[in-house]
Amino acid sequence: MNKAIILTTVLTASLLSGCAQQGLYGTSYSRDQVRQAQTVQYGTIESVTPVVIEGRDDGVVGAGTGAVVGGIAGNQIGGGSGRTLATVVGAVAGGLVGQRIEKSATTRQGQELTIRLDSGRVVSVVQEVDNGQFFRPGDRIRVLGQGSSLRVTY
């Protein structure tokens, strides 16, 4: 029984640490974006709207880990065919709970920025709020771009 509790604790910790996602703010880069040329434009923030960036719900980490944890917990109940049923029910319930935990853990506060570029063109960019610091209308900013992907920094 103690081994099951330890394993359940380890798997739960793995679930929560696996839910961390790369930052979606202006100063965060994926490995694929490093050393890639980007265009640089300057502009002024016209408006800022707080938004919520939905968390991941593909279930790869959350549902998988939750199913394992739930299955282990269910396996500790009863015996024979009752134990098998409890294991299956535990795995399904754990998978659903794990998926919800993953989505909640990866939901982020974002901001939709409407920007008037110095060229006169107006663009909108949504990105994660970096350390609780929102851009404000009138801020002079840089817009970095590569293809259709843009990021805003000071």
Rank of each mutant, 00 (worst) to 15 (best):
F135P: 00
L24W: 10
V51I: 15
V34W: 10
G120W: 07
G64Y: 03
Q22C: 08
Q133H: 14
I45V: 12
A63L: 02
T9K: 04
G120Q: 05
A93Q: 04
Q127G: 05
V89S: 08
S148P: 07
Y42P: 04
R116E: 13
V125H: 04
G18T: 03
G43W: 10
A93Y: 04
S30F: 11
S81E: 11
D32W: 06
V122M: 09
A37C: 06
V89H: 04
A4T: 03
E102T: 00
T44S: 07
E46L: 14
L15T: 00
R140Y: 14
P137M: 08
A20F: 12
Y42D: 07
V125L: 05
A86W: 02
G59Q: 04
A13T: 12
G98I: 00
K3M: 12
G80M: 09
S119R: 08
I101M: 05
S148N: 15
I77L: 12
I45T: 10
Q146R: 15
D58S: 08
A86N: 04
G98T: 02
Q146E: 14
Q146D: 10
Y29H: 09
G43H: 04
I77Y: 09
G74W: 01
A91Y: 01
N75H: 04
D139E: 07
E128W: 07
Q146A: 13
G43C: 06
V129P: 00
Q33A: 14
V68N: 02
G90R: 02
V51A: 05
V61G: 00
A20G: 06
R31V: 12
V92D: 02
G74Q: 02
S81M: 14
C19N: 03
L16F: 13
V152H: 03
A20I: 12
R136A: 13
R56Y: 04
Q146L: 14
G95H: 01
T8D: 05
R31D: 15
R108L: 02
I5M: 13
Q146S: 12
S81Q: 15
S17E: 11
D57Q: 15
C19L: 11
M1V: 10
G98W: 00
Q109P: 06
P137H: 08
G55I: 06
A67M: 09
A105T: 05
G59S: 13
R31L: 13
D57Y: 08
L150K: 09
V52L: 10
D118P: 05
E128N: 06
G132Y: 11
Q111D: 09
L85S: 12
S104Q: 10
V40D: 05
L16A: 11
Q22P: 06
Q33N: 13
G145H: 09
Y25F: 12
G70D: 01
I6T: 08
I53A: 09
Q76D: 06
G94D: 00
V129N: 00
A67Y: 02
R142D: 03
G90E: 00
Q146W: 09
E102H: 11
L117F: 03
G74E: 00
V60E: 05
Q41T: 08
E46H: 09
R83Y: 08
D57N: 14
A4C: 04
I45H: 05
Y154I: 13
I53T: 02
D118E: 15
V61W: 00
G55T: 05
G95K: 01
L113C: 07
Y25K: 07
N75P: 04
S30E: 10
S148K: 14
E54K: 11
I101T: 00
I5D: 06
Y154H: 11
A13R: 11
E54D: 07
